[in-house]
Simulated scan of single mutants.
Amino acid sequence: MFKGSIVALVTPMTENGDVDYSSLQDLVEFHIKSGTDAIVAVGTTGESATLPMEEHIHVVRKTVEYAAGRIKVISGSGANSTDEAIELSQASAEVGADGLLSVVPYYNKPQQRGMIAHFEKVADACELPLLLYNVPGRTVADMLPETTAVLARHPNIVGIKDATGDLERLEALKRVLPGDFILLSGDDPSGCEFMLRGGHGVISVTANVVPSMMAQLCKAALSGSREQAEQIDTPLQALHHALFIEPNPVMPKWALYRMGLIPSPVLRLPMVEPELDSQNTIEAVLHDIGVIS
Rank of each mutant, 00 (worst) to 15 (best):
Q231W: 00
D18V: 00
G179E: 15
P129T: 10
K72Y: 02
G35Q: 08
G199R: 10
A207C: 06
G137H: 12
L243N: 09
L269D: 02
V291C: 00
P12N: 09
A221C: 04
L27D: 02
A221P: 01
S102T: 15
R61G: 00
L184W: 03
P249E: 04
K33L: 08
V158G: 07
Y107I: 09
D233A: 15
V150Q: 09
L267C: 11
E55S: 06
T234Y: 14
L261A: 00
G35L: 07
H58F: 13
T36H: 07
H287Y: 11
V95F: 07
D124H: 09
Q216L: 04
A79Y: 01
G17T: 09
S81M: 10
G186C: 02
D288H: 11
E54C: 00
E171T: 10
R70D: 04
M1S: 12
V10P: 07
H241P: 00
P249T: 08
T45W: 07
D162T: 08
H240M: 02
Q112C: 12
R258P: 04
L27C: 02
A49T: 08
S34A: 15
P247H: 09
D18W: 03
S75D: 03
D20F: 06
A41E: 01
E230F: 13
N156L: 05
L101K: 01
V291K: 02
S102C: 15
V158I: 15
E87C: 07
F244H: 08
A152V: 05
P270C: 03
D277H: 13
V272H: 11
S89F: 11
G159P: 13
P145Q: 07
A141G: 11
S278R: 03
A97I: 04
M53T: 14
C192H: 08
G159E: 14
A38Y: 12
Q216N: 14
A85T: 08
D188M: 04
E275C: 00
D98V: 00
S223M: 05
K33I: 04
E230A: 01
G191T: 09
T44M: 10
S212A: 14
P136A: 03
C192E: 13
P12Q: 05
S293H: 09
K109S: 13
L236H: 05
H31C: 01
L236Y: 05
A152W: 10
T139F: 03
N134T: 04
A93Q: 15
D277K: 14
I57W: 02
P129L: 11
P110K: 12
A221T: 02
V272R: 09
M251V: 02
I157Q: 07
Q279G: 01
L261H: 12
S223R: 15
M53F: 10
L170C: 06
M213S: 11
M214C: 12
S23C: 02
D124F: 01
I289K: 13
Y133P: 04
T44A: 09
T148V: 15
P252V: 05
S190K: 14
P274I: 07
G76W: 01
I86F: 08
G43M: 03
V272M: 05
T164N: 14
Y21V: 03
S48V: 01
K121V: 01
S75Y: 03
D288E: 15
S278H: 13
Y133N: 07
E120Y: 11
I86C: 11
T45K: 05
I262H: 06
I86S: 11
R70N: 11
L239Q: 04
